[in-house]
């Protein structure tokens, strides 16, 4: 398989992760409404709200963040400030892009590594999260290194695109709403 094909396939995988995030946002909406509804209307005997809804929402929010991060990087949607990049000559801007990509890659790899150590340490110690639901702590902790591993991979593909593309800064997003 050529690298280009690999990059395309990886893009598809990132799309799939984003689709999961969409499903989570939809489920989040329904779950919170169901909790409110069941708490106020005694329709199902013995059920008074979903006591676990709060903590599951929190986990969902975290999962949405981690699932979308590599996908957003592929789409150039992690916003940044490009005022200097635009002010300097294109070739210099291009060189800046290499510098920040290298920093980004190192940073993602480091967080993946230390995230994995945190998850492993928690697994080895048998740490459990005791809330309404009792779950092993490493379930959530391990998503972080996975997401940053995915980000590291995408940083590599991103650098490849920079190498193949025009010798100028990229057009990434520059603002949130």
């Amino acid at each position: 398989m050529s690298i280009a094909a690999l990059e395309a396939a990886y893009g598809k995988a990132l799309d799939a992760l984003a689709l999961v995030a969409c499903a989570l946002i939809f489920a989040l909406t329904l779950m919170i409404c169901a909790d409110v509804f069941l708490r106020n209307v005694r329709i199902v005997p013995g059920t008074v709200g979903l006591a676990w809804s709060n903590e599951v929402s929190e986990a969902m929010l975290y999962l949405v963040t981690m699932l979308t991060a590599p996908w957003l990087l592929r789409r150039g949607q992690h916003i940044r400030v490009d005022i200097v990049l635009r002010a300097v000559p294109p070739r210099v801007g291009w060189a800046f892009e290499w510098a920040v990509d290298a920093l980004g890659l190192a940073c993602c790899a480091a967080i993946a590594y230390y995230g994995a150590r945190a998850a492993l340490a928690s697994y080895a110690a048998g740490s459990i999260s005791i809330k309404t639901l009792i779950t092993p702590e490493w379930w959530l902790l391990s998503v972080l290194p996975a997401a940053f591993l995915a980000l590291s991979l995408e940083m590599l593909f991103r650098m490849r695109r920079l190498y193949l593309g025009e010798r100028a800064p990229r057009d990434d997003a520059v603002s949130t709403g």
Partner: peptide, 23 residues
């Protein structure tokens, strides 16, 4: 009754039949 809880109180209030919620 709808009672706001933290983990400290959950089991006790639930044992008295409360609808517990985290806020």
């Amino acid at each position: 009754l709808k009672i706001r809880i933290t983990p400290v109180y959950r089991d006790f209030f639930q044992s008295m039949g409360a609808a517990v919620m985290t806020t």
